[in-house]
Design a binder for these strands. Structure first.
Lengths: 244, 244
DNA sequence: CAACAAAGGAGAGCACTGCTCTTGACTTTC
DNA sequence: GAAAGTCAAGAGCAGTGCTCTCCTTTGTTG
């Protein structure tokens, strides 16, 4: 931090070695995370893999929680990159297509990196509190992207009026929605916003069920078809029509 | 097992003491779980609280994983009882009312017992595999109850035809649905079944987001209103109309 | 009632964890 | 070349799951 802005010098060999070391620790930490899960993440084991004695890693990483934070940010950004790439591959005005691409990208990444997904969206690690000032920005990339797609669709008039019976928005909820709308500069009305929140939670609920094995071992064979069906229904729930 | 069916004698003092001890261990284990989380559940700490040396608890509980299994079953049954009580308080033919009661009961219990909820529905504990033969029955109580409500509504003709654009059910998914229908003796067609699965995952997705703190700390103030709104939308998604 | 077997508690011990502190060697800078 | 900064290594502390042995308590049986 202070080193970077005090002098714009090229990094000294020592600094390069240091950041290389931190990168190695994060990389091997990710491997351990993938193999043994977050709760079993052991700094000592990582140290052994790095080829250094356990106490030495404390020169680079303050604590086990610090390593968790690094892995958390790493995971959020990887998921964010993955989602961004998938969404950007779809034309900007194909809102339904972008929505589906986002959902499929989340699922694909989650199934490929179940341990990282569990760290990001599973039960909180006991005794660990993520430092908000470092994790909120990467941690909100996906939801902001989703909100962006839905609000752009709303502005363009591509959001169909909702089907089904009208659902009242009570005043407290309306106030929350107003705050969200103001903070993110959105146009969509309360009804669409509230449904957007439901679509958001439902998307991650479906992915979590699959990744965390809440479906029985062999209840659903065609899981991809099931998920795509869910995405289609959620798309309708959000108000997005095919072809718009 | 063998004791119980070989002789129907009343339990000896020793047996009573034993089951009392196991009950104490589970009870204090639950407290530790609630305070420190699943990954930090320590047999030694529980032993201290029980007032016995650490090695002694292994006379009653085979291992830490065994204790986790006991807590898992305990949690499933408590959630199941809670949900059953809430649903049973609503007239049998008020399908929409029963659905909402089920959803609210899940949320209430989850917020009251976040650690237990995390154990049941959060990221799997690394290295721990729940023994299916002991956990599937209590673990499926809520979903079976939900399926029961929806299928009863379907049979009675109370399920409205779906709104929105028709969504195709691909053959693989149809086969899964047929298997589920056969195994549970259901009447509902593929479309309703698939939507029922989505309602199921969405319900727990919404609860998990709240319990696991995925919403920001202060994004939503009126969380109960938000959840009830979600329930209303999900109710419509399932096909349940108000008043039926 | 006494002898015997089963059950349970206590303690030591092993291998592991996160983390701290000190020691000694190395590198950079003045 | 000396001073300052950096870092690896090792010992050590308190905690963990779990096993083993020893010894007392309990219940059953001859």
């Amino acid at each position: 931090m202070t080193i970077a802005d005090s002098k714009a010098k090229p990094p000294t060999p020592r600094e390069r070695a240091r950041s290389q070391m931190v990168a190695d620790i994060v990389r091997l930490g990710r491997e351990h995370l993938a193999r043994h899960g977050a709760a079993a993440l052991s700094l000592r084991a990582v140290a052994r893999d790095v080829g250094v004695v356990s106490s030495a890693v404390y020169r680079y990483v303050e604590s086990r929680d610090e390593l968790l934070t690094l892995l958390l940010i790493d995971g959020y950004n990887e998921l964010g990159d993955h989602v961004d790439a998938a969404v950007d591959a779809i034309p900007e005005t194909d809102y339904a297509g972008r929505f589906k691409a986002l959902g499929l990208a989340v699922r694909t990444w989650a199934l490929r990196e179940p341990a990282s997904y569990a760290l990001l969206f599973g039960s909180p690690v006991p005794g660990y509190q993520a430092p908000g000032e470092r994790t909120t920005v990467p941690g909100t990339r996906v939801i902001l992207r989703l909100v962006g797609i839905l609000d752009a669709a709303y502005r363009s008039g591509a959001l169909a009026p909702q089907h089904g019976p009208a659902v009242v928005i009570p005043p407290g909820l309306a106030a929350d929605m107003e705050a969200v709308r103001a903070e993110l500069g959105l146009a969509a009305d309360d009804e669409f916003l509230a449904r957007g929140v439901l679509v958001w939670t439902s998307l991650f609920g479906a992915v979590s069920f699959e990744v965390f094995g809440q479906y029985g071992a062999d209840t659903f064979v065609a899981r991809e078809e099931l998920f795509e069906h869910h995405l289609s229904v959620l798309q309708g729930l959000a108000g997005l029509c095919e072809g718009h």
